[in-house]
Design a protein around this nucleic acid. Structure first.
Lengths: 196, 196, 196, 196
DNA sequence: CATGAATGAGAGTTCATTCAT
DNA sequence: GATGAATGAACTCTCATTCAT
């Protein structure tokens, strides 16, 4: 049954995601995944030819969390631009501070080991679309009179680069929540309309 | 002979740096270093217990390059703050775009695999001292009337986070020189006194 | 249904022959045959217990080619003994030079891996019957005055051993057509009545 | 010590020869050789990168038997051509009938699996040099008046092809000593000067 | 101190064979 | 009968680490 097959594959991806989240990418062996899935060595190879293939599918398969919804809901509820942006940044903060519950480390490790042209690179794509979203928010905010910004695209990019910097620092040397708050505040201040 | 010992150790570190620069951290085996050093397998173990220890010493031992001097010379030559800052940023650009000639990738790989408390972490130290330098430059620039900045420390931190973001993007998805230029320009514009 | 069963078995053997002809014996896996037959993995085991059993049936089931007919037709058409013998040798030449379209390699591989008493051995049987055919031809030829031979059986055996040698050389080190022609000529000359 | 190393390598080759003689080529695994040599898995890889490499060295390293000497001694002792030829054929017989004490089966298996251009092929070289030796013997014999032969090279080639045929038959279907004797006799008769 | 041969655990991968459906 | 997912043994190869010399 292709249906059963698909379920199994989904199960493997789910379990593998947990393994990658815990151990990163490079330290994960087929054996690790086999054990997490409680299947046989050969069984795993029926579905995937190696950790690389598994990881790519993990990356593409969106986790069944409802985090995104929070954000999307806000957008639909006509929240103000600054609220939405703040929400976005909070989300980013939550994500980048949580060392063990996500795939960030594994993702970095993966793309170190497997350089991939920017055009196909999911990380790059995610980065670009986040920039676009932020830019849109800033433009809206400027129109609302909430923000003041001469270069929305530049500001959006700067935000994302800074967040990326925080993220990698968080994964490697560790970053305190306070530091993240401070930087986020700095980023917001830079575009908030100053009261006269 | 402690002297001979020290020389040998230094040689190993020098050669190991080349190896790490070329292959990153995780892909380097004891064998690689043994071969690069033209030393015996057992011999290496007399000085170091594994790649981890070697890499840490490589990180702490400053490379005998003269790159820093360029920067320090500028400081001493009473260049303007904006010139020095621009020089610093150019240096960062050069470094982060060059994929193969430095330890960046190896460093990231290392600290992914070996998380280390911020207090002892050399990367964190370097980051902090860079922030301090930039902050000082901005403050000087403000005093000179070259810059305009209400939060020099915040601006300095933002620069470093953004550079860090560019660095990791460069190592993983790849970043064009144009993108780096654009971001650097954005950072500079943010503090340059606007002409009236 | 024994009938349906038999058809399926025949199909498997037909497809398996192609696989063996292409890949030899030892490199063929059950999976290869399963895929060639477009049958299920378990299904194949309903009919055969392994590659060995399949190969033996392939060997026993005569290929539905019409190569033999050429030869047999000649016999019936009252061609001269030397013509028929030449035809036979040409056929052998064609077969032994063609590396990929027949079961020779697979057969050798099989009997290396599975030595089998001469009495049941199909290769031995084939060899013996070929010797008998050649002997008969020579005897006829001698009676016709075409050939001159004191030991027809010995000559027949020598021919077959030499052909076998050419065959194995062809499969392993490679033999040029020229070499084969030369040897065949030598064999024929040995029995042709010399003109006075 | 390179000396110790060389001895070990020689030991491995010696033991490996026994393994190949017993099990052929394709069925031999690194593990088999490891066990025969009583060394560690990794240890074997210090000397050889795989069974293929080992087998090639086994083929090139002459076995430390003194069989050849028997033959060479005869040549030097000015034995008659027919004696030497008979000796050579006896030697071939001994070799081709001994199923388990030599590398023939392994050699065939090897060259099935690893086709190799005739020019470098040791089997081909051996074949050609044997042909040359036989041809020389026949020519000498003709001059002595022992043999009668119009095409010494053709006869030599025929002998070798027939021996090769016997050899392969011996390895696969099995050949009785009687059959070998009969064929050898046939070959000799073909060139012996017939008494008037 | 220094050597480098040796070890053995462990990773990746393949395949014949079984068995619940 | 027929399926094909699942198993697990076996093989190749690599490397950190040790130890006799």
């Amino acid at each position: 049954m292709s249906d059963k097959s698909a379920k199994k594959k989904a199960l493997i991806i789910k379990k593998a995601r947990e393994v990658f989240a815990e151990k990163g990418y490079l330290n994960v062996t087929m054996k690790d995944i086999v054990e997490a899935c409680e299947i046989s060595r050969g069984g795993l190879y029926l579905y995937f030819s190696g950790t690389e293939e598994i990881f790519l599918e993990v990356l593409n398969e969106p986790a069944d969390s409802d985090e995104d919804n929070v954000f999307e809901r806000a957008v639909k509820e006509n929240a103000t631009s600054s609220d939405i942006l703040a929400l976005f940044l909070q989300e980013q903060k939550r994500e980048l501070l949580g060392r063990n519950n996500n795939l960030q480390r594994a993702t970095y490790e993966f793309f170190f080991a497997n350089p991939m042209p920017a055009k196909e690179n999911p990380v790059k794509k995610q980065f670009d679309s986040a920039v676009a979203v932020i830019e849109k928010l800033i433009i809206d905010g400027v129109e609302n009179g909430e923000f003041e910004c001469e270069d929305p695209k530049g500001a959006a990019r700067n935000m994302m680069y800074a967040l990326e910097g925080l993220r990698i620092m968080s994964q490697t040397v560790g970053v305190s929540e306070k530091s993240v708050n401070r930087e986020i505040l700095y980023l917001l201040k830079g575009i908030l309309k100053e009261e006269v």
